[in-house]
Simulated assay, not measured.
Amino acid sequence: MNRVSTLFLKIAVILIGLPVLALCIFLVPEIATFAVELFPNIPFLNVLVFIYMYVTAIPFYVALYQALKLLSYIDKNKAFSELSVMTLKKIKYCAMTISSLYVVGMPFFYFMAELDDAPGIIVIGLVIIFASMVIAVFAAVLQRLLKNAIDIKSENDLTV
């Protein structure tokens, strides 16, 4: 039963990564073209948009890889180990990085929304920031709980 659950979760993690990959391939060039149309005076804006969007995708995929590693630790009955704690720590840092990058990019989103009269751009940015922070807090709580469980387990092993 345990392997079926983790297999389902591994498939879900991969399926989460596919739409983001499709967005990076198909939507980012459109966003870059749109930004150049809105701000024709800024040289190399399309390159900056490409760099920004792809740099924000890197921690996302690192976090997905760490989630797959965590699921493999669960499969190998190493869920209560320091490896799992370190994996959760990396997921937390990736989520905080994504949130920070989007906070830095929000002024640009604001100017794009003002020029195009599309407030949805700002909402999308805020949703990404909020979701990343929720994931970071959740990973931090899980990391602390797992660390406490490992400490209690090691104390119990020493007393026996």
Rank of each mutant, 00 (worst) to 15 (best):
L88Q: 05
F80T: 00
F44N: 11
V85I: 11
N77R: 04
V13F: 15
V20S: 02
P43S: 05
A35D: 12
L88S: 11
L18P: 07
K69I: 02
I31H: 03
P43E: 08
L27Q: 14
V20F: 11
L45N: 09
N77Y: 05
Q66H: 14
L27E: 15
F60M: 04
Y73V: 01
V20P: 01
F34Q: 13
V28S: 03
Y61A: 00
L71H: 02
L45K: 03
I91K: 00
V85S: 10
P29I: 00
K89N: 09
I51L: 08
A32C: 10
A57C: 04
L64P: 03
A32T: 02
K76V: 12
P40L: 13
I14D: 13
K90I: 11
P43N: 06
I31Q: 06
V47N: 04
I25T: 02
V20Q: 05
V47C: 13
L45T: 06
L38V: 12
I58V: 03
E37L: 13
S84L: 11
A22R: 00
E30P: 08
S84W: 03
N46S: 14
T33Y: 14
V85H: 04
V47K: 03
A63V: 09
M53S: 07
E82T: 06
F44G: 08
P59R: 00
L18S: 09
